Amino acid sequence: MATLGTTVRAQGTGERRWFCGGGVHTWLAGEGETGGAYLLFEDELDAGKVTPLHRHPDADETFYMLEGEVRLHVAGDEQILAAGGIAIIPRGVPHAFAVTTPTARMLCLQTPGGGEAFYRQASEPAGAGEPPVPDFGRVRAAAAATGAIELLGPPPF
């Protein structure tokens, strides 16, 4: 059994990646650092960002809102998740969200790990300048290649 090292990361020092359709992920703890136990990232979101209806077949997903709010669609039910709120979505449950404020920030935790390959393939390193044009074909290809996410349909909003 491998022994994991300690990870200490100051604010803003995690790997930053542009993710399709209006957001930057800052990776706080990758699967390699957690022995595959989880993936944790902060998601900075822009107004109008929506996700397709999807599910994670092998991972539970938890959102903790730091700022702003999203309209969350889980298994056909919709509600607003605002700063300080938490949503725990078990594996296999269809869900999507739409940002309803000018900006929003949330922590996203996936347990166990396993989704990192999807997020890497569907994103690119964030640097200075404008975000790339959303490429949903890239997201579909990453989903098909990794199996970490199943795209079920368009945003339900």
Rank of each mutant, 00 (worst) to 15 (best):
G147N: 06
R55P: 02
E124F: 13
E33D: 11
Y38E: 10
E124R: 15
I89T: 00
V50M: 01
A83I: 06
F157T: 01
A104Q: 05
P112I: 11
A126F: 03
L45F: 11
L107Q: 06
R55T: 02
P154R: 01
R120F: 13
K49E: 09
G92T: 12
A122M: 10
G48S: 06
E116D: 07
R140S: 15
G36V: 10
A82N: 03
A141C: 11
A47K: 03
T34P: 09
P156K: 00
L40S: 06
D135N: 14
P154F: 01
E124P: 12
G129R: 09
D58I: 06
A87S: 11
L66V: 13
R138F: 12
Q121M: 11
D46P: 06
E31T: 03
E33G: 06
H56T: 11
P57G: 07
A29D: 13
S123R: 02
R120L: 14
L151I: 07
P156T: 00
L45P: 07
P94C: 08
D135T: 10
T146M: 05
A37L: 15
V99I: 04
V50R: 00
P52A: 02
A145G: 14
K49H: 13
F136D: 04
V93I: 12
A128Q: 13
E31Q: 07
T51Q: 04
T101R: 05
R120D: 08
D43L: 15
G115P: 12
Q121C: 05
F157N: 00
G92Y: 10
A141M: 13
E150D: 04
Q79R: 12
P131R: 08
F118G: 03
H73S: 03
G68A: 07
D43Q: 09
P94K: 01
E33S: 10
A98V: 06
Q79I: 00
G114E: 02
Q79P: 03
G30L: 13
T103E: 15
P57H: 12
E116W: 12
M106C: 08
A143K: 02
V50T: 05
A98M: 08
G84V: 03
A82E: 05
E150V: 05
G92C: 14
P52L: 00
P90W: 10
Y119E: 02
G35P: 08
G35M: 13
I86G: 14
G147R: 05
G32K: 07
V133L: 15
H95E: 04
P90C: 15
T146D: 06
E67S: 15
R120K: 09
G85V: 13
T111F: 06
Y38V: 01
F41Y: 12
P131I: 07
T34L: 12
P154G: 06
G114D: 02
G36Y: 14
P94R: 01
D46H: 08
L40Q: 08
P94Y: 01
Y119M: 00
A122S: 09
P134W: 09
C108D: 11
E130Q: 15
P155T: 01
A75G: 06
E150M: 04
A82F: 09
V70M: 04
E69P: 07
L39T: 10
P102S: 09
